[in-house]
């Protein structure tokens, strides 16, 4: 359950930012969690309700964008969608596939109120 410690670190980061900006409240947090990031968005969202209690983000709505994974073949260079690490190149059947996107895990932005 690393989602709880991650939820706490997200709350800490957005609160720090909101205070810097002089905000009294965080009403929204936009996250980018790639499909291959190793994070379950649903269990993360579940953890937020507990992690955000008593913070500026207590009433915040958490929105998650989940970019799909993209692989690049190390042999033929083809780019194609992947759903997991053990992808096979649809062009040349090579297993030398490098993940080029889908591993993102970012706090994209926050919506704050004065």
């Amino acid at each position: 359950m690393h989602e709880m410690s991650i939820a706490l670190s997200i709350i800490e980061a957005v609160e720090e930012k909101a205070r810097e900006e002089g905000a009294g409240k965080i009403s929204g947090v936009d996250l980018v969690i790639g499909k291959l990031a190793g994070i379950e968005p649903e269990s993360l969202k579940f953890c937020f309700s507990a992690a955000a209690k008593g913070t500026l983000a207590e009433d915040a709505v958490f929105m998650v964008e989940e970019p799909e994974g993209t692989g690049e073949c190390g042999d033929c260079g083809m780019r194609f969608p992947v759903t997991f690490y053990y992808a096979e190149c649809p062009g040349c059947r090579s297993l030398r596939v490098k993940i080029v996107s889908g591993e993102e895990f970012l706090i994209q932005s926050i919506t704050i109120e004065e």
């Binding site: 980061a13 996250l31 994209q108 932005s109 926050i110 109120e113 004065e114």
Partner: peptide, 18 residues
């Protein structure tokens, strides 16, 4: 004006601190 709602872009890696 006070009470304005605005968006602040962070683009910060969640695991950045670690």
């Amino acid at each position: 004006h006070d009470g304005a709602v605005r968006k602040v872009v962070l683009e910060q890696d969640v695991l950045q601190k670690n």
